[in-house]
Design a protein around this nucleic acid. Structure first.
Lengths: 253, 253
DNA sequence: CGGATAGTTGACTACCCTCAAGGTATGTGG
DNA sequence: CCACATACCTTGAGGGTAGTCAACTATCCG
């Protein structure tokens, strides 16, 4: 397993997905620049490596710039549940600012490029700028909204509806940060990882994928998900993108 | 159905559950007093009345002082999923500060006493005081942590484990704000409401309750839940209270 | 006392799990 | 280039948890 590598900012691609999210969060000019300036310490994280361990009280906050990660909870019997998928532009562990110990782990699902931000520095920035504080709170709200939608998915949707909903969510979130378009996206997750996210078994994920395939809604091959009938997929999933709050932060007045 | 009534602050009980939460959130003295001063407009809300409707973009933020409420999502086919139980001291719709439209509704499950706060005033207060902003962000983190634990409950725990976990969570949260002790609490939820929270049917809740009863873990009668064997209940539930972050907000330095 | 709401029980069904085996793709070393 | 290992996907058979439908009971309140 390769070790995580530190990079200088000069090696970095532009922070585009992060910039997109900051703009949605209402940050422009000096405030946005101040946040991006904190992202000068980049790390490459190999797949399967964990960024945050359950019970940790880290001094570092990670912003995902490239790749996919997941927030995961482990059980005594070895099973696990993914509680969130972290996509480019998302913050992996924003609650480290306010909470003494994480109740989840964060694992890289693919090789990832992350910006490692000092908790202290980000906290100071938020304390000094109410727009930055509001932007971070907005991101917390979205994490929470997605988590609540997932509760509804696991609780009340059939596996078919749930899987369709997951694909709809991923397509929409990825398109919002410029990764993939409405025809599909690169799908790095194994069926086992999808199963961890959906709270079902990988065997059942497989059968469910095949159901969607058979009905001509999607194709899924070679880590590429193609949406063949977007309206029908949304209909099956009962997908309403409102909870993603893509309309950006609500201004105070 | 009785109409909601406005009360003067003079009619109010002390804001004890809210004060407890504010203290945990690191607010003392002037900051805490400033928040409590915003809570001068009280409303009595009858059971079943909704405080917030899905899709609303309210100008009011409600702090629950007495009674129980729930955040709820509705489906096209009429079923519903409760995504959070709101207990005394909790804020019903804190994300109204940052988000243009709620993706959930809030319903009073019992007669409730709430403080109705102007979004503008709370936002101004948070913009002017970084401790207030941090306290609100801390509350968002806890909402999120609970939601993620619920995902794990619905996704990976059996109904028996899940129900035990729900009882453990409620006991712990209520005890933290001075409602009930470790022997039990007043349980106003119907089995149908428990079912909406757990993502199962009320028939199955009934059978599951009886399972826990038969094993001598709990008794549940006349809206009183008694925990007969707290260690065993925690063991069944695989309950670890860490996610509730009862150790309070993490200081910045 | 009567009506409504909530809780209980039974019979049957269906979705998803478990266990197991086989298939396919990719990478590695001889 | 082939043998082999590994990881992932696919398929089948059988079982268990939870859903559905329906009836009945208990409790609360006017």
């Amino acid at each position: 397993m390769r070790m995580a590598a530190a990079l200088r900012i000069a090696d970095a691609q532009p922070l585009t997905p992060l910039t997109t999210r900051l703009t949605m969060a209402g940050l422009h000019g000096a405030d946005a620049a101040a946040v991006e300036r904190l992202c000068d310490h980049l790390r490459l994280v190999p797949a399967r490596q964990s960024l945050v361990r359950e019970g940790d009280a880290g001094e570092t906050i990670y912003v995902l710039l490239e790749g996919w990660a997941a927030r995961v909870k482990h059980f005594a019997d070895g099973r696990r549940q993914c509680t969130a998928l972290v996509l480019p532009g998302d913050v992996c562990n924003l609650d480290a600012l306010h909470v003494r110990a994480h109740d989840y782990g964060v694992v890289a699902l693919t090789p990832c490029k992350v910006a490692a931000i000092s908790r202290q520095q980000l906290g100071d920035l938020a304390a000094g700028s109410s727009s930055v504080a509001a932007a971070l709170a907005w991101m917390l709200c979205i994490d929470n909204a997605i988590a609540c939608e997932w509760i509804a998915c696991v609780g009340r949707r059939s596996s078919r509806q749930h899987l369709a909903h997951l694909f709809c969510e991923l397509l929409t979130r990825l398109a919002a940060v410029g990764e993939g378009d409405m025809t599909g996206f690169t799908m790095p997750l194994t069926q086992e990882e999808i199963a961890d996210a959906m709270g079902i078994t990988s065997v059942h994920v497989n059968r469910t994928v095949q159901g969607l395939r058979a009905d001509g809604l999607i194709s899924l091959d070679a880590h590429r998900l193609r949406v063949l009938d977007w309206p029908a997929l949304q209909r099956v999933a009962d997908f309403n993108p409102g909870y993603l709050h893509l309309d950006g932060i609500r201004p105070l007045n």
